[in-house]
Simulated scan of single mutants.
Amino acid sequence: MLDVFTNPVTPFAQNANLLVCQTTKHAAIIDPGGDIEKLIAAINSANASLKAILLTHGHLDHVGAAKQLAETYDVDIVGPHLGDKFWLDALPRQSEMFNFPLAEVFTPNTWLADGDTFPFGEITLEVRFTPGHTPGHVIFIEHDSKRIFVGDVLFNGSVGRTDFPGGNAQQLKQSIESQIYSLPEDYTVYPGHGPTTTVGHEKRTNPFTSGRFG
């Protein structure tokens, strides 16, 4: 079984999700965007053993603490898709633009692709490729507990921005419909910002995918 601890970090209130296998206490953290002391405290509070850092995409508020956290725990950085390499290469520029602490350029130990899986403890995550918000965005699905970690693809009542370099609104809508809305309606969606939702709720009410806003 999986425990999830959501920790909003950075001035953008980005949800860094700590995933912990109840049986082994092995853990992975998705999108450690910043506030490393807060993330270390969350790992310690969960009595967890961090095994990996997983990234949905290369925007600063999702990856800002990844390199330092990886060095602190001697673990690999996994993801996103290679399509977001240019965002990781631009981390110093992103830091300057948003007045964040300087984030150094890094290269993940592993790039991810559609259909990959990532195991830790007794948990296995499915990887799906979901470009649109960024060219190399991925999401992570834990089918046993019916949970999806979607980064900035889909929010409660909204969708990710597509006006950044490499964004594509039509591609984003296609990613949502094919990779998220194809899942059962009772799957819980953990967005990169804001409260959780469900696949069914967004299919029925999200104005950006229902046709109300294009």
Score class of each variant (00 low, 15 high):
Trp87Glu: 07
Leu2Ile: 15
Pro108Cys: 10
Asn44Arg: 13
Gly211Lys: 04
His26Cys: 08
Glu71Pro: 00
Asp186Cys: 09
Glu71Thr: 10
Thr110Gln: 09
Asn15Ile: 05
Ser158Asn: 14
His201Arg: 09
Glu185Asn: 14
Thr107Gly: 07
Gly211Phe: 09
Ile43Ser: 06
Gln68Glu: 15
Ile40Thr: 08
Gly115Ala: 03
Asp3Ile: 05
Leu91Phe: 09
Thr110Gly: 00
Gln171Glu: 13
Thr205Glu: 15
Asn15Ser: 06
Pro195Met: 02
Asp74Ala: 14
Leu112Ala: 04
Asn206Thr: 12
Tyr181Ala: 13
Ile30Tyr: 01
Phe86Pro: 04
Phe208Asp: 13
Gly121Trp: 05
Lys85Pro: 00
Leu60Phe: 06
Pro8Ala: 11
Asn44Pro: 00
Thr107Lys: 14
Gly211Glu: 10
Val9Pro: 02
Leu39Pro: 04
Gln22Ser: 14
Gly167His: 08
Pro92Lys: 03
Ala113Gly: 02
Ile180Met: 10
Gln14Cys: 13
Thr196Met: 11
Tyr187Gly: 09
Leu60Val: 13
Ser49Val: 10
Arg93Gln: 14
Ser210Arg: 12
Asn7Pro: 00
Glu202Thr: 03
Gly200Leu: 03
Asp114Val: 00
Trp111Met: 08
Pro195Ser: 10
Trp87Leu: 15
Gly151Val: 11
Leu18Gln: 01
Gln14Gly: 10
Phe129Met: 03
Gln94His: 15
Val63Leu: 09
Gly58Phe: 09
Ala103Asn: 05
Ile148Ala: 15
Leu154Met: 14
Leu50Cys: 09
Lys173Thr: 12
Gln68His: 08
Pro191Asn: 01
Met1Asn: 11
Leu39Cys: 06
Phe118Trp: 07
Ile148Asp: 03
Phe118Ser: 00
Ile139Pro: 05
Tyr190Met: 05
Gln174Met: 14
Phe155His: 05
Asp114His: 15
Ala52Asn: 04
Asp89Phe: 03
Ala28Leu: 03
Met97Glu: 10
Asn109Ser: 14
Gly136Gln: 02
Asp35Ala: 05
Glu126His: 13
Thr6Glu: 07
Leu102Thr: 14
Glu37Ala: 12
Gly194Lys: 04
Leu91Lys: 07
His81Ala: 13
Asp163Lys: 12
Thr134Arg: 02
Gly64Leu: 09
Thr56Trp: 00
Leu54Gln: 08
Thr188Gly: 02
Asn44Ser: 13
